[in-house]
Amino acid sequence: MELEGKTALVTGGGQGIGRGIVECFLREGAQVAVVQRRPLEPELAGNPAVLGLQLDLRVPSAVPNAVQQTIDHFGAIDILVNNAGTMFERSVLEIRPEEWDQMIVLNLRTPLFLTQAALPHMRERGGGSIINIGSIEGLAANPGHAAYCASKAGIHGMTKALAVDLGTDNIRCNAIAPGWITSDLSETYLATQPDPAAARSALHKLHPLGRLGEPDDVGNLAVYLASDRAGFLTGEVITLDGGRTAKLPLPF
Rank of each mutant, 00 (worst) to 15 (best):
M1L: 08
L3G: 01
A8E: 05
T11M: 14
G14S: 11
V22E: 10
C24A: 15
R27I: 00
G29S: 01
A30M: 02
V34E: 07
Q36C: 03
L40I: 03
L40T: 03
E41S: 14
P42R: 05
G46C: 02
N47P: 09
A49Y: 07
G52I: 01
L55V: 06
D56F: 04
L57I: 09
V59Q: 15
S61E: 15
V67T: 07
D72C: 09
G75N: 12
I77P: 09
D78M: 01
L80H: 07
L80Y: 04
L80V: 05
A84Y: 04
L93Q: 13
I95S: 08
I95V: 15
R96V: 14
P97V: 10
P97K: 03
E99M: 11
E99S: 10
D101S: 14
M103N: 06
N107D: 15
N107A: 03
R109A: 04
A117F: 09
A118H: 03
P120I: 11
H121D: 06
I131Q: 00
I131G: 02
I133V: 14
G134R: 04
S135L: 10
E137V: 07
G144Y: 01
G144T: 03
G144S: 05
A146H: 13
C149H: 10
A150N: 13
A150D: 08
G154W: 06
G157P: 07
A163Y: 03
D165K: 12
D169R: 08
R172I: 04
A175Q: 08
T182I: 13
T182R: 15
S183V: 03
D184F: 03
L185N: 05
A191M: 04
D195P: 01
P196I: 02
A197W: 02
A199R: 08
R200Y: 14
A202W: 08
L206Y: 01
H207E: 09
L209S: 05
L209H: 08
L209Y: 08
D216Y: 06
G219A: 02
G219F: 02
N220Y: 08
R229M: 04
A230I: 00
A230H: 02
G231K: 12
G235C: 06
E236W: 03
I238V: 14
I238Y: 00
D241L: 04
G243S: 03
P249K: 05
P249V: 08
P249F: 04
L250D: 10
F252K: 13
